[in-house]
Structure formats: C-alpha cells, structure tokens
C-alpha cells in the first residue's frame, strides 16, 4: 500500500514536471496558426531570432519574417507523417538543452527560454557536434527555417532574386482544365482567349526588368 502510494506520487510528480516543461509558461500563440501550438510557435521565433538576427545583410530579420506563420502553412500542406516528423524535430531541439545545455545558469531550461547568446551557442555546438545525429538535427532544423526566411518576398526582392513579372498566359492547359479543385464549368477561357500556341515566339525577359508585383510590394509583414 505504502509502496503503491510512493509510485503514484512519483508518477504524478513526473507528469507534473513534464507538463510544466512542455506546456507551461509559453506566451500566447500568434493569431491564425492552424498546426503549431503556442510552445512550437515560441520555439520557431526563438530559433529565427538567432539564426537570422536583425541588422544582417537582408531586408528582414528572422522575427520580422514571421516564420511561425510560414512554417505553419508549410506543415499544414505536408502529409501527416512528415508533419509529425518536423514537429518532433522542433520539440527535440526545444528540449535538447537536457543534453546540450546553454552557457548560463539554468542552461537546461527550454531552448526558447534561454538567452540569445545561449541559443547561438547551442546551435553552434549542434552544427559541429562529433555525433552525426546532432549535426543532422541542426541541418534539418536550419533547412526548414531557410525556406521561410530567404524565401520571404521582401528578402528575395531585396536581393534582386524575386520572380519576374509575367502576365498570365492561356495555353491548351488553361483551355482544357479548371483551376485545381474547380469544376470543368469554371474554366474561364475559350479558344479566342488563347495567348500561347506552338508558333508563339516570346521575347526573352530583360534580366533587369520588372519583377513580380507581389514581391516588389512586399513589406515587413507581407508574404
């Protein structure tokens, strides 16, 4: 009876500790997230802040690029299995401090609650860790973030690497098929609307010509 009580007490304490470490104390999640919970959103911002700090060579910082929203959209579009893997990756690095602590008192707290200097130090140690699994964690994590950060329209436009402005064309595909998810009756075009056929001769684009308007207009918040 006594041993049973002790086991229950230990289990309860353990559960409380896990709950506290995994869920308590995170700021509210930004509005409009479909997949990421508030802890994951906080983690994404914490990584973005140190991977892509303000004052760098690009237009936006990682925080300004609103990566929780981009990553949330990416996760929502992925198959469930891949989504689970990426969330597992986030949660693993959030708690990797148990194995790779930050350089400060209380360095085993969650990654997202550490100072920027500690977070940089942890990521750097993961990147150069002798164990390949840790390096893989870092590479995978950084890849997810690079897509959202460098791919932000404002950053790409700032580098002169945004897509060219190209007026929508009407080819056989646009004449024969509706937009994805639409009915055949929703096809907007008839043969008279065709702008492209086998004999079309397009002029080359101007390398310094107009860029996609959505990119050239993108500001610090726009995607």
């Amino acid at each position: 009876m006594f041993i049973g009580l002790i086991v229950v007490a230990i289990a309860a304490a353990l559960g409380l500790a896990i709950h506290r470490r995994g869920y308590v104390g995170y700021p509210p999640a930004p509005a409009g997230l479909a997949v990421l919970h508030r802890g994951e959103a906080a983690f994404v911002d914490a990584v973005a802040e140190v991977l892509f700090p303000g004052g760098g060579a690009l237009v936006l910082s990682g925080v300004e690029a609103q990566l929780p929203h981009y990553i949330d959209r990416h996760l929502a579009a992925l198959p469930r299995g891949k989504r689970v893997l990426i969330r597992l990756l986030f949660n693993t690095v959030e708690h990797i401090t148990l194995l790779v602590p930050g350089d400060e008192p209380g360095g085993r707290r969650r990654f997202s609650s550490l100072s920027a200097a500690s977070r940089v130090s942890i990521l750097d140690r993961l990147a150069h860790h002798p164990n390949g699994l840790f390096r893989l964690l870092f590479t995978a994590l950084r890849s997810v973030f690079v897509f959202g950060y460098l791919g932000h329209p404002a950053n790409l436009h700032g580098l002169g690497l945004s897509p060219f402005e190209i007026e929508p064309v009407v080819s056989d595909a646009e004449l024969l098929f509706p937009r994805v998810g639409g009915l055949m009756s929703s096809i907007d075009f008839e043969e008279a609307d065709r702008t492209v056929d086998r004999d079309t001769v397009n002029p080359p684009l101007d390398p310094h010509g107009e860029r996609h308007r959505a990119y050239s207009r993108a500001g610090r918040t726009g995607r």
Binding site: R73, A77, G148, S171, A173, E174, P178, V180
Partner: peptide, 16 residues
C-alpha cells in the same frame, strides 16, 4: 491538372 494560376512561386510550398 495545374493551370498557370495554380503555380506556387515559393519553391518549398510548390513542392508540397
């Protein structure tokens, strides 16, 4: 089928 208006310019989201 994809029409030109279905193309996603963001390479990552396009792949999904």
């Amino acid at each position: 089928p994809f029409t030109v208006r279905d193309f996603e310019l963001d390479g990552n989201l396009s792949m999904t």
